[in-house]
Computed example of a mutant assay.
Amino acid sequence: MPAGELARLMAVPQNTMSAHLSILARAGLVSAERRGRSILYRARLSRLREMMLFLLKDCCGGRTEVCAPLIDELVPCCPQPPSNHLNDLKGAK
């Protein structure tokens, strides 16, 4: 999606959105592809997943109850077979 379109949808100044997307691209969390005068941005889902897992594991510090509310909020957005997400986090440490 072009930076301008993202900025419009999020009601953020276009130059601010471009600056943020540029930082995310340098961090490897989004990819950027020039098309004419526009730059199209795409989320790099594998990298975003790695980052989110790192943050969740790090914030829990071995105490899964700290992240349980966040994990419970994430589960409904992506229905999958039942699993114990708290044990997944604990075992990944």
Rank of each mutant, 00 (worst) to 15 (best):
R49Y: 05
A7R: 00
T16M: 02
D88S: 09
D58W: 04
L53E: 12
I39M: 04
C60M: 13
I23D: 09
S18K: 02
V66S: 01
M10C: 14
C78T: 09
N15M: 14
S31D: 09
R63F: 11
P81L: 11
T64M: 12
G61F: 13
L21V: 00
L53T: 09
G61P: 15
C59S: 14
C77F: 12
Y41M: 01
K57H: 06
A43L: 15
R34A: 13
R35E: 15
K90I: 05
E73T: 05
L24H: 04
L40S: 11
G62N: 06
E33W: 03
S18V: 04
V12G: 00
L55M: 10
L48K: 10
I71F: 08
A3R: 00
P81F: 06
L21R: 02
L29K: 10
L21W: 00
S46A: 12
L21I: 00
A19I: 02
D88M: 10
L89Q: 03
R35M: 08
D58N: 06
A11L: 08
P13R: 00
E73D: 09
L45R: 13
E33Q: 13
N87S: 15
P82N: 08
R34G: 00
P81M: 14
D58C: 14
L53S: 06
L86M: 14
R44M: 05
K57A: 12
S46Y: 04
C77S: 15
A7T: 05
L6A: 08
L6E: 00
D58S: 14
A19V: 04
S83Y: 15
A7L: 01
P81V: 14
S22N: 08
L40W: 11
P2N: 11
L56K: 03
R34H: 13
N87Y: 09
G91V: 03
C67N: 08
Q80L: 13
A92S: 06
D58A: 11
E73K: 09
I39W: 01
D58L: 11
H85E: 15
L86Y: 13
P76I: 09
K57M: 13
R8I: 02
C77I: 11
A68H: 12
R35Q: 13
G61H: 07
L6K: 01
A43R: 04
A43Q: 06
S31M: 08
A32K: 01
V66H: 08
K90Y: 13
R47P: 07
R63H: 10
R49A: 05
G4A: 03
L56H: 07
S46H: 06
S31T: 09
G61R: 12
L48W: 08
P76L: 12
S18W: 01
R26G: 09
A25H: 04
A3V: 00
M51D: 10
V75E: 10
S22V: 03
C59N: 12
L86T: 08
Q14P: 01
L21C: 01
R8N: 00
A3S: 00
A27T: 03
R37A: 03
L6R: 02
V12P: 00
L29W: 01
T64G: 11
I71K: 07
H20N: 07
P79C: 05
M51G: 13
K90L: 12
P2T: 04
A11T: 02
R49E: 05
P76A: 09
R63Y: 13
G91S: 12
G62T: 00
M10K: 14
G62R: 05
L74N: 08
R49Q: 10
A27I: 02
L24I: 03
E65P: 15
R47C: 03
G4V: 02
